[in-house]
Every structure is written in C-alpha cells, then in structure tokens.
Design a protein around this nucleic acid. Structure first.
Lengths: 206, 206
DNA sequence: CTTGACTTGTGACACGGTGTCACATATAGT
DNA sequence: ACTATATGTGACACCGTGTCACAAGTCAAG
C-alpha cells in the first residue's frame, strides 16, 4: 500500500505521479518497468518516490486496485441492469474490458496487465468475490445474482460457480489479447464457451 | 531455445547446469532469479552461461518445457488407462501435479511456476492442446478422448471443452498452491467444480 | 518572530545483476 | 605441425535499485 505521504500529496502532484506510473506500466510489464523512467516522466527525484511507495510493485498494485474497483462497480451495475442474470452481466464485463482495452491510454496498461496476469494480479481483481473475507462487496454481488437460474443448492455452491466463471473469463481475456483477436471474434469464442458452461460439458444421458 | 553448444555439452556437465538452474528457479520466481546464483552453484564462469542460453528466460523455459513434456505423456497414458474418460484423466493429472509438488526438489520449482503462471508459461504447458498448429500431439489427445461422453458435435467444439478444462484446472492448481491447501482439500474443491462443469452451471428448466 | 519538532524533499552513493567482448584454450581435420 | 572452428573465461561497462545524511518546508506554541 502507498504510504501516508502519497495520500497527503496535493491532488495535482499526485495525479502527475499516477500518470507517469501508468505510462511506464503501459510501456512494459511490471517486471520490466523501471522506477527511473517514472521519475524522469514525473520529474521528481529518486528519494521522493520512496516516500510515497514501498517499491515498484506497490505503485503497480495501487493503480491496478483502482482499476479493479471500477470493474467491480461495473459488475454490480450490470447485475442490476440484467436483473440478476449472471451470464449476461459477466458477458458485458468481458466485452467492455476488451473495448476498454482499445482506447488509447488505458489500452496498453490493460494489455500488459492481462499478458502478465498471475495469481496476485488476479486476486486484485477478484478479491471482492472471495468467500471467506468479511467482505461487504461479496454480499453486494451474491445478493444481486438470481440464484434460481443457477444449478446450485446453497450459497457455498455459488462460490464455485463464480470461481469457474472467473477462471474461464480471465482465460478468454488473456487469450484474446495475446492472439490479437478482434472484439467480435473474442466475443464469439467466449460466448460459445459460456453456452457450454451453462448446459454442461457432458452429454446428458438420453 | 538453448543454443547448440548446450546440447553439445557432455551429459554430466549439462546435468550440473540443469540442476543449478532448477535450484535457482526453485528458490524464487523467474523474475527474481539471478543468473549469478546459477553460475555460483554450477561453478561455471559467466561467459559460459551465455554460450548455452540466450538469457535467464531461455533457461527457464527449457526446464519448463521438459516438465511439460512429462505432463503431456502423463495425460496420454491416463486417457488410455481410463478409456477416454477426459474427466477422470484430467482429475488424475491434477492430483499427481499436486502430489508431485510435495516431493522435495521438484516441489518448489512447481510451486514457483504455478505462483507466477502467466500466459506464456501456460502456453508452454498447453501448447500440445492448441488446435491450429500442425501438431501430432494434438491428435494424440483428441483421438484418445471418448467424444461420445461429451456435449459436442464436432472436433472444433471439443477444442472449447479443452479450453474450459484447462482454465479451470490451472485456476484450481494455482489456488491450491497459493492457499496452501492440503491435497485432499484441493481435490475436493476441484472435483466439485468438475462436477458442476459436467452437469452445467445452469439449472435445467424443469 | 522565532524556536523547536515534525514532515517532506533531494540526489549522491554503494551495491548487485546483466550482457559483452577480446582473448585464451581446446578439438579436429589435413 | 598448422589452421580452422568451437568453446571457455572473467574483467568490464552499463544500468537500476534502495538508502541515507542532509536540506527544506510546515506549523503550532511561547
């Protein structure tokens, strides 16, 4: 987490830092990124950076978390919009993430995040879906989902549904970006797989 | 890919290098690993390393690919053993990977690989399952799978089944390792989700 | 206003890792 | 023995990191 000094910064200066960091993390992945470049872009001395952040990761995960919050809001509002239809809501999130990742500016940041996704990064996104934490946002989602629609008997089972959807959704996002699929090609693949998920991978014994 | 000089090396010396590299990549992730440590352990001079490998990544992916080959053989033999039952076969792979990752030596390498899994690493594992490549191994798998069992009409659709299973399996592996689940707890979660996948996430309209 | 306590800014520096290169050494064919 | 080709070697230049001692601000109490 950023240090207190970071939050004490004047709005304007903080934004300059954020922009500089985002620019560097858009250029390359977290591991290739260099603090030196952020300093150069932001025009601040080396020591200052370490007043605000623990290290490179700290800055990166700050940015990522801000992003994840927005995505979470997006999911909540989609669930409302589609009256609890989890599949429609998540499919919209998928599309908007892909489209989002075509905007200049945002684009390369999300690309780099997806291409270097690991469990720590994924957790930053899906932390609001984990069951154990005393997590208000967890309830946000679960209350909104129309559970009637789902093949689950309990709240606990719904957790597994979320896990599966998370896994497949991220997998598709990453696949789309790393193979430069067009938005429509990506959607087609994703929706095919969602359909399979809904109906089941196994042939119903008839 | 390692350079020709690496393959020309005497068996014994090559093994020393491999062991040293594996040791370093077991200590920390690819990005934290240092070539210097490998040199020290293997007792070779700096210049030599660059005779054999392009860089750190090159050595890492060489090791990983060797590992992936073994896993692939394992999947093939499981498919034969279970007479084409994809779910049983993949579930066995899951278990053996987890158990494998309890052995001393292998253990930390696999742990680090899983904890730092990204699309490039995942592709190293699942390259044999991709549909487009002119890939004998692709056929290996697909011919062995009992498609009758599956809710697919074509070979093309089976690709999506594999994609989903890959996504969910890796997701569970990573989750198990990062949360230090016991093998049995991990199996329980994984099999619950496999069951859900088989039957479908959606309640059959009755 | 000034003194002192605390917070924030600064950049030179030591450290450690990387990849290269000129040179040394080995190997094999003639 | 001679030459060509492959391999071994480690000093070196380069770059990024995180720290630290010191400078500069801020602010409240006397």
């Amino acid at each position: 987490m950023p240090k207190a000094t970071f939050y004490n910064l004047k709005e304007e200066k903080r934004q300059i830092l954020i922009d500089a960091a985002k620019q560097e993390f858009s250029r390359v992945s977290l591991y290739e990124a260099s603090i030196s470049n952020i300093l150069k872009t932001a025009g601040i001395p080396r020591g200052s950076f370490y007043q605000y952040f623990e290290d490179k990761e700290d800055a990166f995960f700050y940015l990522l978390n801000e992003h994840a919050k927005e995505r979470h809001e997006c999911l909540v509002s989609n669930l409302k919009k589609f009256e609890g239809d989890l599949f429609k809501a998540i499919s919209e999130i998928f599309r908007s993430t892909l489209e989002h990742s075509e905007d200049k500016g945002q684009r390369d940041f999300i690309r780099n995040v997806l291409l270097n996704m690991n469990y720590k990064i994924e957790n930053t996104f899906s932390q609001y879906l984990s069951e154990d934490v005393a997590n208000e946002r967890y309830d946000d989602i679960y209350d909104l989902v129309n559970a009637e629609q789902l093949n689950v008997a309990s709240r606990k089972e719904m957790f597994h549904v979320m896990q599966i959807l998370t896994a497949v959704t991220f997998h598709n996002l990453i696949h789309s970006v790393s193979n430069n699929l067009s938005v429509s090609a990506a959607m087609k693949k994703y929706e095919t797989e969602l359909k399979l998920l809904q109906l089941g991978l196994m042939r119903s014994s008839s």
